[in-house]
Nucleic acid binder design. Structure first.
Lengths: 153, 153
DNA sequence: TCATTTTGAAGGATCATTTTCCGCAATCAA
DNA sequence: TTGATTGCGGAAAATGATCCTTCAAAATGA
């Protein structure tokens, strides 16, 4: 069953602040705590809500550099994709990695401390993979928008 | 003050599951609830922890298509950047938007229902902006990795 | 139409967690 | 040694989550 309008309001609030109490959510949407609680549990059970996480300030933690990479594999073959996918899983600096359509194979989002740190990652980890043919790096100069909230309207 | 090793363990746990109780965290790192509670509050106060959110399953909510866009502005001028930045802020389907170095100006991450929905976004919203000269779209075929957890080791 | 079932919500009791307070021990500087 | 600071543990108080029962409205069926 898809979330109804009330469920969606709850999701919007929780996507913005998961520490909001059920009581607070209830008062915002003019309901008592019980139905709000039940709706949340239901959406958790049914997988609409996947998990609750905290978001950190990467700059304060010294991870000031954000880089997007385009990766082209040497050969578009099963073994290459498998090697690459497996390697990516073990790289904590890679936050996102997707196979994309277009003139390259992968799109990566990488978080590192600085350009030297990125160089280490680039030379010792990414280009060390035999499956990799070509890498283009795009350094983020300014983050205009950054949200984890998907539109539920 | 930077988080110490104990703080980092707490951050790793909270980045994975922010609903973990203080008691549970405490037992995992062999501490009582008081210091764990104090450390978390401190990291919230000092801004290392920015917010708590819930992550939704976009597919279950009908947002099955993920697209990365490269956008080139017509003119690299203050007014163009301002118009573009402002417009992006009002587009809920754009989850991330960054100014990048390289042969285009912006990198966008867009979430929509399907290709028709993307077409609407592309034609009616993005290319409707006078500041935009060129757009390249890269459709995500497969998400290999997707995490919000930045490395704190 | 009337009775029955189902669904969603409210209120209150109970349980768990968070938060606060206090004291203890280790470390460090004077 | 003394005094101050820091980090930790334990327990009480405050708050919130959860569970259970009841109620009302809508849907279902004879």
């Amino acid at each position: 069953m898809q979330p109804d309008a009330t469920d969606k309001k709850i999701l919007e609030l929780l996507q913005e602040n998961a520490h909001m109490t059920i009581k607070e959510i209830a008062s915002r949407i003019n309901l008592s705590v019980t139905p709000v609680h039940e709706r949340i549990r239901k959406m958790e059970r049914e997988g609409f809500i996947e998990k609750y996480v905290c978001l950190l300030n990467r700059r304060k933690l010294g991870k000031s550099l954000l880089v997007y990479c385009h990766v082209t594999l040497d050969k578009q073959r099963k073994e290459s994709f498998e090697e690459f996918n497996k390697a990516i899983a073990g790289m904590p600096e890679v936050l996102e990695c997707s196979v994309v359509s277009g003139n390259f194979d992968y799109m990566l989002k990488v978080v590192v401390s600085d350009s030297e740190d990125y160089n280490q990652f680039y030379q010792l980890k990414l280009s060390a993979l035999s499956s990799v043919l070509h890498i283009s790096s795009y350094f983020v100069i300014s983050e205009i928008k950054h949200t984890t909230g998907i539109p539920v309207g």
